[in-house]
Write a protein that binds this DNA or RNA. Structure first.
Lengths: 215, 215
DNA sequence: TTGATAATCTAATGCAAATTTGATTATTTG
DNA sequence: CAAATAATCAAATTTGCATTAGATTATCAA
């Protein structure tokens, strides 16, 4: 029963990507560890060598997804383009990021909810378990903070634009929700084989959103 | 052990409303039948008197949620207000509908996914089981159709507006996705105790969206 | 080499939750 | 009223996973 012919061993990264993919199709709760394992030709048990448990794996998927986009968007937000151009770039980066990794995109929308559940606290648990639990909570909160940061980047650019007269007076909080809703939603309905590619969609949406806020 | 003092018996409707509520907090997969039952002071077993199974219950929740809003929006869409006013009303009805029933609102976004999974086909099942399964599939497809109908109502109004010169030339399909993304998203972040009520949010969003599409 | 560590596997274990079964109690209706 | 039907319950039953245990095999470093 020749096992492991000459393959490379599977990396954490491999698993995250594959998991995102499977997760997208099935959703967190209905995706089994076995499903994910199969996607990288491992057994479920083997996954535990790379991740403490299922939640930790989900979190890693989400972190990966957010991280990539957040960095790019942040660079633009901190730069000093005119407000309108800045916002346009940010929108494009977000949408194209989602369409390039549809798996992570949908996960970002749907699975975040799974993280929020009041994970049964650590009643009667070993030292190590308690530690693992706290670690998870820490990471989870960090993730949410980064997500809020993301939202804040948009909000700040909008405020800035209002101040310098590029944008009309709007409730920046609400307008950001509107934008992010529209943008996140792309991750839900976008299909690579569809009529338009990510760039084209981003282009159109940026046009519409800017028109909505231009002074 | 006096059971059932003098309460009225629980209706299908009661269960649907309570379920929507519980579902919102926990999500479909993590909400147990027991949780839902508790919300109407029944035992899990009793729920099976009202619904074939958990999926059927979820579907009923979603049908109820969509149905309410769809009817209202449809009436406006079929009416003959000027395009801009028509679209404004539709947006408002949708958003206010979501904020009034936050439970169903979030479910509409998050739980639909649970319906899509390729429900293990009916291998080796009794006659009755097969029938139940087919019934479920039928209802599920009907639900998706109605949801598409909803999207189409918006698309048609946009096309109409473009033709009569009220709206600028846009890709109606994409613009609808943008709108519905923004609107559905409200169901995700809205909190009744928040700074603004549903009406106010709907108002602002309608303003922005109309500005985006106005000729 | 050789020992340590990493990666993987097969085979349990354990448990939470959906669903069934088989009563019991309420409510209609003929 | 009496029988049928509806609504409910407590107590199994079942099952599908997540997770653990205990090997086995691969890889790397000294």
């Amino acid at each position: 029963m020749a096992r492991k012919p000459a393959d490379q061993s599977v990396s954490r990264e491999d698993i995250i990507l594959a998991a995102a993919d499977v997760l997208q199709r099935n959703g967190y709760e209905t995706t089994t560890m076995k499903d994910i394992a199969a996607a990288v030709k491992l057994t479920a048990a083997s996954l535990y060598h790379h991740f403490r448990n299922k939640d930790a794996l989900l979190l890693a998927v989400l972190e990966a997804g957010l991280g990539r986009v957040l960095n790019e968007v942040e660079r633009v937000a901190r730069g000093n383009l005119p407000s309108e151009e800045k916002l346009r770039q940010m929108i494009r980066l977000h949408i194209v990021g989602l369409t390039n990794h549809t798996a992570v995109g949908a996960a970002m929308v749907f699975e975040i909810q799974s993280l929020m559940g009041t994970k049964n606290p650590p009643v009667e648990a070993s030292e190590a378990d308690r530690e693992a639990y706290e670690d998870f909570i820490r990471r989870r909160n960090a993730f949410f903070e980064r997500r809020d940061q993301f939202e804040m980047l948009f909000r700040d650019v909008i405020r800035e634009g209002i101040e310098n007269g590029s944008f009309r007076m709007v409730d920046a909080g609400i307008f950001v929700k509107l934008m992010l809703g529209a943008q996140n939603w792309v991750g839900v309905w976008y299909k690579p084989e569809g009529r338009l590619d990510g760039e084209a969609i981003a282009e159109m949406m940026a046009d519409s959103l800017l028109r909505a806020i231009r002074a």
